[in-house]
Design a protein around this nucleic acid. Structure first.
Length: 132
RNA sequence: CGAGUCGGUCAGGCGAUCGCUCCCAACCAUCUCUCGAGCUGGUUGGGGGAGGAAAGUCCGGGCUCCGCAGGGCAGAGUGCCAGGUAACGCCUGGGGGGCGCGAGCCUACGGAAAGUGCAACAGAAAGGAAACCGCCCGGCCACUCCCGAGUGGCCGGGUAAGGGUGAAAAGGUGCGGUAAGAGCGCACCGCGCGGCUGGUAACAGGCGUGGCGAUGGUAAACCCCACUCGGAGCAAGACCAAAUAGGAAUCCGUCAGCUGUGGCCCGCAGUGGAUUCGGGUAGGUCGCUACAGGCAGGUGGUGACACCUGUCGCAGAUGAAUGAUCGUCCUCGACAGAACCCGGCUUAUCGACCGACUCUUUUU
């Protein structure tokens, strides 16, 4: 961890990697943001940064090209987020019809829903203030 | 110039910034030791990074495991001939049939004299068929008259040429023939059978022969014949470390049973078996991309393709990379995303370009 220009990169450590990571979020989410086209679930973690997981069902976005597009947009958005005091594991689920939107519209929705989610974070936790 | 046929190529370009993944090199940190390397993490630099269909998963292989992939039944598939291939249901060439003026295109194209089944409606009759109208002959009765016939009715027979029904009416057309008709006879065509010629063959040509009461259609209906096919799939499968490991108890058995085995039987191989209790893991590495490989040239072949030489290195992710934003140009960008790998088929698709060829009109 050499500091530097970290925060714009999106390495392995910023993703949810296995099934247990996912089920931890699903079982007890601390915050959620629901929208016509997507659903965000979040749970506080002990890592140094946010971690993202994507669940894009074939049922909701039929074409593989479409699923890839949504994933890339989501990663791009989370990559650009600034470092936060309180870090969470986030799972993004998509709903039907999201593949009809263009890139700009999806980015806007992601921005709105992230803000909505951020307000629900358990701010007053004493131990989470990390010094670096 | 216009209309069209066949084959092939490409799949927005350029620049800037910020990212992802793999490989290589250097450096830094950590650990290990046989002190030079190795392991892990990171930084910097360089390089590679979706498709013609990556798709549907419809065929065929390779590869892996099931000991070998053996025999029989069942089941599935293929179906003109020859060749190509690792193999195919693919491709090439050829033959038959159909369509088009033509370049060309389409073709599930074995068997209906082994058996079973099926065919609505109409029609007199529909498969060893059948006289409804009609046509013709004979007999009887009635009527008419030019006394030999005609007309009408009834009865008995002949007739598949004509009408009508139908998807289809039992070879077709023509001439002869006949009471009227009929392969009854003849010619041509079709069909069956037998030689002959050409061809590897499918098949074609021609000769003879049978008058054709016999052989109707349907086999993507059962079926028959010929040929092919063992089963599962990279979550195949192999390894590593940790935790299981390992076990414990009860019962039953010793030419049987069970497992491999996927439908069955035989064969073969392995093994004591069943139940209960307790305890758990579903992390990482390999498989994983270099081959039936691309490109160029040559040789053989009508061609699919084969062989030889040279040259190139061209994605390997694993909660799953190959992108985002901005600028700019143009013809304003379709269908669409690798997951073990190849060969095909099929389906989706904005357009652009190249080559060969055909037809119509005009001009020379």
């Amino acid at each position: 961890m050499e500091g530097g220009k970290q925060g714009c990169a999106f390495p392995r450590s910023k993703r949810l990697l296995n099934a247990s990571d996912y089920s931890r979020v699903f079982e007890q989410p601390d915050a959620k943001a629901s929208h016509r086209f997507l659903l965000l679930l979040a749970r506080h973690n002990d890592a140094d940064n946010h971690r993202l997981g994507l669940v894009i069902a074939k049922k909701n976005v039929r074409l593989a090209v479409g699923r890839n597009r949504i994933k890339r947009l989501a990663r791009e958005f989370f990559r650009a987020l600034p470092a936060a005091d309180c870090t969470v594991d986030v799972v993004l689920l998509t709903r039907r019809g999201i593949d009809q939107l263009d890139n700009a519209e999806v980015s806007t929705i992601l921005q709105q829903q992230w803000q909505k989610l951020s307000r629900q974070f358990p701010k007053p936790e004493p131990d989470t203030s990390r010094d670096r």
